[in-house]
Design a protein around this nucleic acid. Structure first.
Lengths: 149, 149
DNA sequence: CTGGATGCAAACTCTTTGCATGCAT
DNA sequence: ATGCATGCAAAGAGTTTGCATCCAG
């Protein structure tokens, strides 16, 4: 299956699966394509309010689960309380600020084969290898240097 | 500061910080050293029951926070509901099963400098680089092959 | 029509907070 | 004696579930 990046593609995939094409799904999908790459369910709900005044949080969660199953989005592994979803499903890596919790993409050519091989050697069937760099983002590093007097 | 792996070292560090050496802290520290490497607060509570019948969950959380601050343990980035703590603080990587959620260590020599350099290039001050391999653990791969008929 | 999807409300889990008591120093 | 740490209870945040209604097919 190819990437799902248009309304028509989402529609086709849903039909194939015998699932329905609802305004909520189409609009949330559009918002995920157009909006911030990393967001929580609550944030997506807030973004959708103008176009879907009555959308509910359970629907947002259900839709995010569905989109994750379709490979449209991914959950970002993290240590905070709220799940962060990533509207880019393709393989890439992340920076996470330990102070403000912000997540941003790290597009770097990291050789990850050693990790996959090591995992296979332990009987593990790797699907994905993700590299996460934790530290201080530019803003927090600056603020930290000032406040750490 | 060196690694804290003995009661005496924990005692010394706590004294240095003007904090108290309580039975709860000592026993939880011992359990973390001796028990499973990856566990949740609830699991640690359960493990501590025999030795600390009255210990409470808030105390476990407070102690885990403290130990994380001391660099004794680490939180494992994940997508599940419950925080998983790792009693090994030294740098290593993780395998996470997408089916059963199990976390295990991956000790592999992965060259992570490219990621750190890329992060620095974006104004990020990297503290740690972690590689997480997601996929199916041996048990779930076997079960999946059977049930995915 | 029919059944999957939605919205609402409530339940549930995990984690944090407030406060009185207790204990390490 | 001092005040940090604990235990209990309750609150809070995030997520899931149950169920009646609605709407896409």
């Amino acid at each position: 299956m190819d990437a799902i990046t248009l309304d028509a593609e989402l529609t086709a995939v849903l039909h194939d699966r015998g699932q329905r094409v609802t305004p909520q799904r189409l609009i949330l999908h559009r918002l995920l394509r157009a909006g911030p790459q990393h967001l929580t369910a609550e944030e997506l709900l807030a973004h959708s309010r103008p176009q879907l005044p009555n959308v509910s949080l359970p629907t947002v969660y259900a839709t995010l689960d569905l989109f994750e199953e379709l490979g449209v989005i991914r959950r970002v592994a993290g240590t905070g309380p709220a799940q962060v979803y990533d509207s880019r499903a393709e393989r890439h890596h992340h920076l996470r600020c330990v102070r403000c919790g912000a997540v941003s993409d790290l597009d770097a050519d990291i050789d990850v084969r050693a990790a996959a091989r090591a995992a296979e050697g332990r009987g593990f069937a790797p699907e994905r290898v993700e590299v996460t760099v934790t530290g201080l983002c530019r803003a927090c590093a600056a603020a930290g240097a000032a406040s750490a007097v």
